[in-house]
Write a protein that binds this DNA or RNA. Sequence first.
DNA 1: AGCAAACGAGAACACTGTTCTTGACTTTGC
DNA 2: GCAAAGTCAAGAACAGTGTTCTCGTTTGCT
Lengths: 239, 239
Amino acid sequence: MTVSASAAPGVRALRRAAVEAELLEVGRRHLAEHGAAGLSIRAVARDLGMVPSALFRYVSGRDELLTRLIVAAYTSLGDAVVAAHASAPPDDPRARFWTLAQALRAWALAHPHEWALVFGTPVPQYEAPGEQTTEPATVVPALLVGIGADVYAAGEASPPPFPGADELALHATEHLRGRDAGRVNPDALPPVALANGITAWTLLVGAVSSELFGHQGPNHDPAQLFDYAARCAEAILFG
Amino acid sequence: MTVSASAAPGVRALRRAAVEAELLEVGRRHLAEHGAAGLSIRAVARDLGMVPSALFRYVSGRDELLTRLIVAAYTSLGDAVVAAHASAPPDDPRARFWTLAQALRAWALAHPHEWALVFGTPVPQYEAPGEQTTEPATVVPALLVGIGADVYAAGEASPPPFPGADELALHATEHLRGRDAGRVNPDALPPVALANGITAWTLLVGAVSSELFGHQGPNHDPAQLFDYAARCAEAILFG
DNA sequence: AGCAAACGAGAACACTGTTCTTGACTTTGC
DNA sequence: GCAAAGTCAAGAACAGTGTTCTCGTTTGCT
């Protein structure tokens, strides 16, 4: 706001920006080390060389700090997956799917606590201020749906159309419309591709969570579970 | 231990058992109301009419209380699903699968915080004392795998055998052997049935978690997602 | 220059989990 | 039947936590 055409940034604005960036950085470090439950606003303040109450000038409370870390995690995940996907051959949907899946798992293994933060139990009672989080949360599943739509449009695959696909797609379309219009046009998506994409996404997320959280049923070599689950997801997506 | 053939239960043993039961009950209530993060040993003690330190005679700390609640949740879920499954026609595997799936979702909707406790983020840093939890955690997925094995043995279905099934099954067999020998004999299971059963289980858990936690990608009517995901799981399991 | 906003520090409040000590009660061995 | 041993609840205390308030100082705008 203070950044107009002629006005210099100003000492205070610069300092504020720096503190805000450092705050997020220290928050991410604490999150990576101690997990969401162990993220203490006092400890973060200590690392910043501040007294705890001073932090409340930048964040309204612990929950808002967590919310910022959530969108940071979504953004980091989205960036990683999108970058990996961009390096895959654009006209080979199966290769695009596999690089997406492996990038997803690789990010999760590298940032387990951040994965838990976004795909695990909602930490406070019920935070999740949808306005800020749903947008960055949508990019990876939208990418996956887009892959399914591409291969469907090219007529190269025949994903199994189960009953209920239309209804599921209808609601999802309703929800997607206008939200990320820049990526995929939800109305142009065939219902089957949308429904199967969402389901494949659910399976991938479930497999990674199972691997990371560990306590889901009979343990197995986690990498192999993900591999096999991804194969099933591929079958759901491509037929 | 004090209950031998001739020794009467004793005033103290009776009282201890009563307090222990009430402790678990109050813990479950607090968990259901405030979630795992809000479960306070002091508040539980207040509800029990005790001073906080007195609780340490029954539980070694907050983590052990959580562990007990975890096995209680697993047991409750297992009981509910097993009971529902028992009421399904034994020689109709598809019906058995659907009653299992719906019982799973129904229990989750009725006990969201307990679901989050067992299938969400591990609450402290890394508790999960495998000795106590893995056994009750195994019953539902074992049931699902059993359904797949039955239909496979009957030759009524042709589940898709993806590459990697043997390796995944090998590790799972290794892990299951001797653990719940009473339910399914892991060595007698065809690898495809085992691998597909685990994957179907992963998909079901993922769909329920997506519905309960809410913040997984593009929102949709959650009931329809579960329905569609269950249909895909059925296809994975039965072909 | 003066005024208002932003900022950091400090103290305080109401919590939390956990440990130790103390006194009363129950069980056990003789 | 009685004394020793073990169990239990309470109380106080310690080190933490999130959050709110007040109070000088510093900065930015006019």
